[in-house]
Amino acid sequence: MSNGRTLLDVQNISKKFGGLVAVNGLSFTVKEQEVLGIIGPNGSGKTTVMNLISGAFPLSSGSIRLMGRELADLSAHRIARAGVARTFQLVRILPGLSVMDNVVAGAVFGHRRRWRTEAESHARDLLDRVGLGDKHYQPVSALTYIDQKRVELARALAGDPQILLLDEWLAGLNPSELHTGIELIESLSREGRTIILVEHVMDAIRTLCHRCIVVNSGQLIAEGTPASVLSDPTVISAYLGDD
């Protein structure tokens, strides 16, 4: 797993909002078929990193390359087409469309673009895959929270992305849903998908991630296997406070 090719190469990225430096000179790489976890205390800049990779807003400086292709100056839709798919920290669905069309949206406009019957059958497969086999034509607003998260995941998968960004996809689930959720992501990883996870759920980090980076105040403070970074004294003090 760890000797695959580099898929995503993030070099020295920074983001400033006015006077606030949210991400400060961060560098890391993600290899093909790897699951990378980004962890850190609240407000450490994790979601900002996801937003920068997916192009939600532009970098202040630095470079992000996907299989050698520079993403830094591309707009969000071009980055999506290049092969970066994401879910959102606070679930974002398309409330006026059916479950099916929510996923078709990803299949029609994503990295690999399909249309009509091909898009629909692809969406149907993915809905079955994430466990919504019986809810294809329900209005999406009628779904429970975890089902909405499933729709979002299926939508992200529908364009056959090169890399999948999951921003606290497991947050807000109850223990049994969490178990199902972790299994689902694990099965995606077994399929060979490359994933970046931002998570607070430590069980999920331990089970799913091959490697972790720890971010604090927008800077990298540790990198390694989940077990090693979680026992690192710098990481522990970042979470619990220094003095």
Binding site: A56, R81, A85, P95, L97
Partner: peptide, 14 residues
């Protein structure tokens, strides 16, 4: 239709 529903999602699905 997607833009009318959620413009952010629209951008991020490409």
């Amino acid at each position: 239709k997607i833009i009318g529903n959620e413009e952010t999602v629209a951008r991020h699905v490409g």
